[in-house]
């Protein structure tokens, strides 16, 4: 809001508000949507092709890395997080942080349990 609080001359006539908000409203250019769209399509078919190539244990990392790039494109541009308020960005980051805790901490347990060779693991 262009609220520079001038005491005495605060003009909150509805018409002015409308104009202000229109100026602030971020309209994402169409070409950005199409660029993101084509990137997503290309990445989908790239990852599909790569899955048929035997990279050993790296297949999962390549596939997930491409998925993360695709998801980031969707979140940032289709979901407008790139243009959104800091609070929204923080909420998005908080959910990713939580997901990392859930997956990573649990999996480090699962991955390393067998290392000890202790019965009843």
């Amino acid at each position: 809001m262009a609220n520079h609080a001038h005491p005495g001359q605060v003009d909150h006539s509805p018409v002015d508000r409308v104009t202000e908000q229109h100026l602030e409203h971020h309209i994402v250019p169409k070409r950005i949507y199409f660029a993101v769209f084509f990137a997503l399509i290309i990445l989908t078919w790239v990852t599909t092709y790569i899955s048929t190539v035997d990279l050993g244990r790296w297949n999962i990392f390549v596939a997930l890395a491409i998925a993360i790039v695709k998801a980031s494109l969707v979140v940032l541009f289709f979901m407008h997080v790139w243009y959104s308020t800091r609070l929204t960005k923080m909420i998005v980051m908080a959910s990713l942080f939580w997901l990392t805790l859930l997956l990573f901490i649990t999996m480090t347990d699962i991955w390393t349990r067998t290392w000890m060779g202790v019965p009843g693991r």
Partner: peptide
């Protein structure tokens, strides 16, 4: 994410 996990990662 479902697509790579269910269809892709063990394909080869």
């Amino acid at each position: 994410f479902l697509f790579p996990l269910l269809y892709l990662i063990d394909r080869s």
